[in-house]
Amino acid sequence: MSLYYVQKFLFELNRDEGFQARYANDRRGALDGFDLTDEEERALIEPDIGLLFHLGVNGQILMHFAALHSIEWQDYLQRMRDGLISHGPVREGVYAVTGYEGVDAHSERLGQTSNTERGN
């Protein structure tokens, strides 16, 4: 596990257009210099948004990576939900202590009705 370096790679990719071009041309080559496991490399190359979320990548970093791959917002959210089903709860990081509850379930639990109009 090297969540730090997965996120470091994405942090640098998100803010550097030159790095983005390099990643577009050679995804595996762009990972050189980052201490990553095979699983993490696969997730970054494919890319596997659901697996990256399961590994613990912060959504504020991950959503820009999804946008870079032209993954539409609702699709981005669904890929993370699918990742939790496929791989299990988030392994570490900020999100490790909670599971996915769902917007509608949360609103129902709080007795709110206003949030249920969209599952987003």
């Binding site: 939790l84 709080l110 709110q112």
Partner: peptide, 13 residues
Amino acid sequence: WPATPDSGKINES
């Protein structure tokens, strides 16, 4: 819960 699968959850109270 921004940018997570729970994006859209809001605790109004």
